[in-house]
Design a protein around this nucleic acid. Structure first.
Length: 373
DNA sequence: AACATACTCAACCGCCCTGTA
DNA sequence: GTACAGGGCGGTTGAGTATGT
């Protein structure tokens, strides 16, 4: 239908607000509330359109606005929510008290988006990009460093090198995901992605094959050794967030949407993911996260598995849908057969060598990775 | 010091949705 | 059911500032 903008009246002021205008606006709203935004400018004695007043108030003058740099936590929240909601800035802002949609949008466009791109992630899908072009700058930088005398490599260069290798490995891993027998069973519906929907700080992501370093701050539930508890609360099981192992694959930690629903737990705290201690062994185990996307549901549901990268055979998926298939929630609409069946988990068509594809995917001999650029 | 380039973010634009007469 | 007003939202712009050459 369309309609003329509210600000097309000539004579109305545009551009930056002066302190006097701000004062008038604040004073009026504090005294009378904003009421009708269109009527407000006249009542407040402002030569502005109502829309401009509303924006100025909501984005700048509102008393509950939090200004200043975004914290690491806020950054992770934005990344997480953006991976789910996309560019729904107001929806994202509703989860960040004191932050405006405009501020978040700016922060995304100026910082986070670039950060993801630089790391080889598609900022819209949050999935690793597989095109060579996206990784080329890093690979070139690395190649350049290799050519140089190592003694001249400064700290920044070393950091760049590490980042480049990490990214290249991720790319390789993603390539394996797409090209392995595993994906061949779901080539038309590549449901598996690496986890980027959890509030994992992918900006500080560990190298592939240890996407999570699991080494401390968690312990086993006193009553149920299959449950790992968050230790950030002094071993108080009652206040810890439980993490469950998959009941068919004791080495698989479950995160989202596990079955039965009564057992469902979710990682909503990054602390739960960062550090888990293999109690009693005193050893550190690295975990990788895999997610299964369900693009067919109303919302893009996903299920996740955290897989220790140290015991390949024991976590091989089975073919009878007792495994990953049970990890999905019941959000499917009736008759939605696509849902989160586990075809993609190796699925009905899981290869006979299924027991090896975990090792193929997650436990590749480091020597292979060292061959990467 | 001067200029060029990159970056930031407040503000604007125009489309879309919702409520109402 | 339709037209319209009001408000909300996402995309874009551009002035101001920071950084690099």
């Amino acid at each position: 239908m369309g309609r003329s903008p509210c600000c097309d009246e000539s004579g109305l002021k545009k551009g930056p607000w002066t302190p006097e205008e701000d004062q008038k606006l604040v004073h009026h709203i504090q005294k009378h509330g904003h009421g009708s935004w269109r009527a407000l400018p006249k009542l407040a004695g402002l030569n502005r359109c109502g829309k401009s007043c509303r924006l100025r108030w909501t984005n700048y003058l509102r008393p509950d606005i939090k200004r200043g740099k975004f914290s690491q936590e806020e950054e992770q929240t934005i990344l997480h929510l953006h991976s789910i909601l996309g560019n729904k800035w107001s929806a994202i802002a509703s989860h960040l008290p004191g932050r405006t949609d405009n501020e978040i949008k700016n922060f995304w466009n100026t910082h986070l988006r670039k950060k993801l791109i630089q790391m080889g992630f598609d900022p819209m899908t949050h999935q690793p990009r597989t095109d060579l072009v996206s990784t080329l700058p890093y690979l070139l930088a690395l190649a350049s460093m290799m050519d140089n005398n190592t003694s001249s490599i400064d700290e920044h260069a070393l950091s760049l090198q590490a980042e480049t290798i990490q990214m290249a490995k991720l790319q390789y891993l993603h390539y394996l995901l797409q090209s392995s027998s595993f994906s061949s069973s779901s080539s038309s519906n590549p449901n598996f992605v690496f986890e980027q929907n959890n509030p994992i700080n992918i900006t500080n992501m560990q190298p592939p094959f240890s996407l999570l370093n699991v080494n401390e701050n968690h312990h086993h539930n006193n009553n149920n050794p299959s449950v790992i508890m968050d230790d950030n609360n002094n071993n108080d099981d009652s206040s810890c967030q439980p993490l469950h192992y998959h009941h068919h694959h004791p080495n698989v930690l479950l995160s989202h949407s596990i079955d039965p629903p009564s057992q469902q737990v979710s990682f909503n705290s990054q602390s739960c993911l960062n550090n888990i201690n293999e109690q009693g062994q005193g050893t550190t185990t690295n975990y990788a996260i895999i997610s299964q996307m369900d693009h067919t549901a109303d919302d893009d549901n996903y299920s996740s598995w955290i897989v220790p990268s140290s015991s390949p055979s024991s976590i091989a998926p089975n073919n009878n849908n007792n495994g990953a298939s049970t990890t999905t929630s019941n959000n499917n609409t009736p008759g939605d057969t696509s849902s989160t069946t586990t075809s993609s988990y190796g699925g009905g068509g899981a290869p006979s060598s299924s027991s090896s594809y975990w090792s193929e995917l997650f436990l590749v001999d480091p020597a292979i990775m060292h061959e990467l650029p």
